[in-house]
Nucleic acid binder design. Structure first.
Lengths: 147, 147
DNA sequence: TTGAAGTATATTGCACGCAATTCAATTGAG
DNA sequence: CTCAATTGAATTGCGTGCAATATACTTCAA
């Protein structure tokens, strides 16, 4: 018996659907934790970068987050409206916009410090399995990106 | 030395970011393959279900896809406009909407048959690793869903 | 020096996800 | 039997993702 191609067109067998569902479900878990900070999950990702590197431009932020200006520009304007970042054109090169963490944005970091551990506990999986999951995701991303 | 909570607030260490990036990147790979079929990735997921079960209602479809009516109603209207499904109110219970695969929708299945294998090849990862990745995602989803 | 190519960000448009609300139909307790 | 509670879809509103395009600025070669 040669298996039909058909056999692979089943939702439950598709890696991508599992990845897609787990990713959305995990973001939903973050939502509850981020609500007190008035952050969405993608906004939280941007803040993670800024907490490590309090100033960088949109292009560099986009490369770290794998997002383009079409996504980042409105997202960063919302963070600016909330007072967590400032956006200023570079004097040297008027095309570049510097994103800077504000004091208020810096203060948020303390409120977020418990989140990684909380999520880890909610996952209920052993650390080793989560690390391997992360590793496989990173590898998959690299492979597809390299095409 | 006790590690600071701070140490976990690093983008590159976060499983969720890896999952989030890999998921979006994989959907992007599907996009190219689905363009000839005039389907988006979530629409493709709905078609996968219908190819196995040519008629079901919105609620059951939503449970399979982990999506609610706010997402599905407009998505299904688009599939209806393309002629791939029909939407009809149940006679027995006027609240229920039956989604049915059309002949044209059935024909799409043949055009999609190559996709799973193509994606597998593009991933460049061994089947075993992909299966384990899928398994961990499924487990993670279950754990978070159970809370 | 000047204009063509390249670059960084912004804008537009479309399709999700999903919370919150609405609405009509159905069910079920008293 | 009746009306309050429940249910299945639809609607509304907001924030992404991302392709495509636009715009302003910069660089670079002839």
């Amino acid at each position: 018996m040669i298996p039909e191609n058909d056999d692979y067109l089943v939702l439950e067998k598709q890696l991508c659907f599992s990845l897609y569902s787990a990713s959305h479900r995990l973001v939903r878990s973050y939502r509850l934790l981020l609500e007190p900070l008035d952050l969405t999950y993608p906004q939280y990702l941007a803040m993670l970068v800024l907490w490590q590197q309090p100033e960088l431009n949109v292009k560099d932020l986009g490369e770290k987050l794998h997002l383009d200006s079409g996504t980042l520009t409105p997202l960063l304007k919302r963070l600016e409206n909330k007072g967590f970042v400032s956006r200023t054109r570079s004097q040297q090169d008027e095309r570049v916009v510097h994103i800077r963490l504000t004091e208020q944005g810096q203060l948020l970091k303390a409120q977020a410090s418990h989140i990684p551990k909380t999520i880890f506990q909610q996952s209920g999986l052993p650390l080793e399995q989560l690390q391997q999951l992360k590793h496989s995701c990173d590898l998959l991303f690299q492979q597809l990106e390299a095409l």
